Structures are given as C-alpha cells and as structure tokens.
Computed example of a mutant assay.
Amino acid sequence: MSTQSFKEDRTDTPESEGTTHFGFKTVAEGDKVKLVHDVFEQVASRYDLMNDLMSGGLHRAWKLALIDWLNPPRGGRPYAHIDVAGGTGDIAFRVLDRAGPNAHVTVCDINSHMLGVGKARAEAQTFSGRVEFACGDAEALPFPDRSFDAYTIAFGIRNVTHIEKALADAYRVLKPGGRFLCLEFSQVAVPGLDAIYDTYSFGAIPQIGKWVTGDGEPYQYLVESIRRFPSQDRFKAMIEAAGFARVQYRNLTGGIAAMHSGWRL
C-alpha cells in the first residue's frame, strides 16, 4: 500500500447504514464491539508495551502533557474524576499522583481483561480507597448525570462504534463546569513527517507486534484505526456538536497525537 493510499484511507468515509469501520474493513455495527474486545483481550497484559510500540515510547510524555493541561486540584476539596477506556489505570494513577488527597478516580472500561490489569496494578499502588474500577460502555456509561468534575479518555475514543454517542455521554456525566480531555493519535501536521510515520506504522509496528506477542493482527488493526480517526479540526467540531464550549486542541509531536479539551457550561 502506498503512502498516498494511507492518506486516502485516513479520511473517515461514511459507511452504509448499519455498518461501521474496523480498521480499513467494513463490518456490521453490532460486530465492532466484539472485534475491538478481542483485540484488547489479546494485548491487555502488554498494553503499555503496545503503546511504546505505537508511539516509540512517546505516549509517556504525552500522558504527562495531558495531566499538565488537566491540572487537577491539589487542595483538599473533593474532586471526582472519570477515566474512560483506561482499564490499566495508566491515566488514573497519574491523576492521583498529581491531585489532592480528596480526589477519587473511577476507571471505566468495556474490557474486563484491561480492568483486571488495572486492578492488579492498583494493589501495588498507595491509592487505597481513591480509585475504583467499573465495567461499562463509553457510549452509555453506568453513572448518573452530572457525576464528575473531569472526564479523560486516552487512546480509546477511536475504538468506540459511535464517537458522537461517547461524546454525548461524556457531556451527560460531567457536572456543570466540568472538563473533558481526550488524548488520541491524530493526523500528522508536519510535511514529510507523515510519510516517515506511515512507513514506520504499517511496515514496522505489526511485525514488531508479531515478534513480541506472536500475532501482528491486533497491531495492524490499531494502526488502521488511527488512520480512520477524524482530523483534529473535524474532531473539534464533533466535540462542539456534543455541547461542549471553549473547545481547543494541542498537537503533540507534530500531530502524531493531539489533545482536545472542552468544558460543560
């Protein structure tokens, strides 16, 4: 596949009614949840390694940038945070490291295998009583309206079947004045870097994944899912359409990843 076709594939072409995309494949909407579940079941125990492979290790710096922009309160006031599609606890633990003693983070993930990794990691941390894990769908979170002060989702929203439904539910569970922050692989904005990135992504990542895990298919899907995700400006418009105000984004590493922020008024 040529670099030109990578660029064509990254445009999020509408699917026919009742279908959606799974990487570059077209599948029935009802099948995508299971297909994505199977991918993350395979990689759950190596999730951080997967992100290292996908980003060349840069995801660690990007996550710190997310926490810096979030700037959770460090004082004593109560602070309720939800991290969606973050089953391994990677973002949750960073929030708790930074936030005050009355901060509480709920980790919600649709995949029980990812949650199992997070629970095991939490047992080794010093956050007893400050973090909980719940199984739930980002498109219909199992929490009441206006429950949280902040909502984060990192490298997860591109895997949902209906992004607009996930954004609407993010708005629903946030309190007035609540903050939405998303970190996701995005569209390279630096001329020349996109060709290098495409060559690395499609040529190296699935093969490395096969060497590490014995199966390159999950990594092939993850690379393809990045190319199908909306551009920074289009995703910004989707967040605004969900009702969020003061929406903005920041590119990371030339647009390989981007952070989007919005507020529920």
Score class of each variant (00 low, 15 high):
D109F: 02
D83P: 07
R130W: 03
E123L: 14
R130E: 00
T126H: 14
I110C: 10
A103Y: 06
M114C: 01
G87Y: 02
A99V: 12
T126C: 10
E139R: 06
A80S: 14
P144E: 14
G129A: 00
K119A: 04
L96A: 05
H113E: 15
N111Y: 08
A120C: 02
F143Q: 01
C135K: 14
L141P: 09
N111H: 06
F133Y: 15
H113G: 08
F143M: 07
A140F: 13
E123A: 14
G86C: 08
A99N: 09
T126G: 11
G136F: 03
I82W: 02
T88I: 05
V117T: 03
P101S: 08
S112N: 02
V117Q: 13
A120S: 15
S128D: 13
G89C: 04
D97K: 13
K119Q: 15
G87T: 03
K119V: 10
P73T: 09
G136S: 11
G89V: 07
G100E: 08
D137S: 13
A134G: 00
G89E: 01
A92K: 10
I110S: 14
E123R: 14
M114S: 09
G87H: 08
F143G: 04
P73K: 06
P101I: 00
P101R: 02
G75M: 00
V84R: 07
D90H: 07
A140G: 00
A80P: 01
P78M: 02
H81F: 15
A140W: 09
T88K: 02
F133A: 04
G87S: 04
C135F: 02
M114K: 07
R94Q: 02
F133S: 02
D90M: 05
I110Q: 12
G118A: 05
Y79M: 12
P144C: 08
A99M: 05
I91L: 12
A92Y: 04
G86F: 09
M114T: 07
G89T: 02
F93Q: 00
R74F: 07
C135L: 14
F93L: 05
A122T: 03
C108M: 05
A85Q: 04
G100P: 06
D145K: 10
S128H: 10
V117W: 04
D97S: 12
E139S: 11
D137L: 10
S112T: 12
D137C: 12
M114Y: 06
L115H: 01
T106P: 04
D83N: 09
S128N: 07
A85I: 06
A99R: 12
P78H: 09
L141N: 07
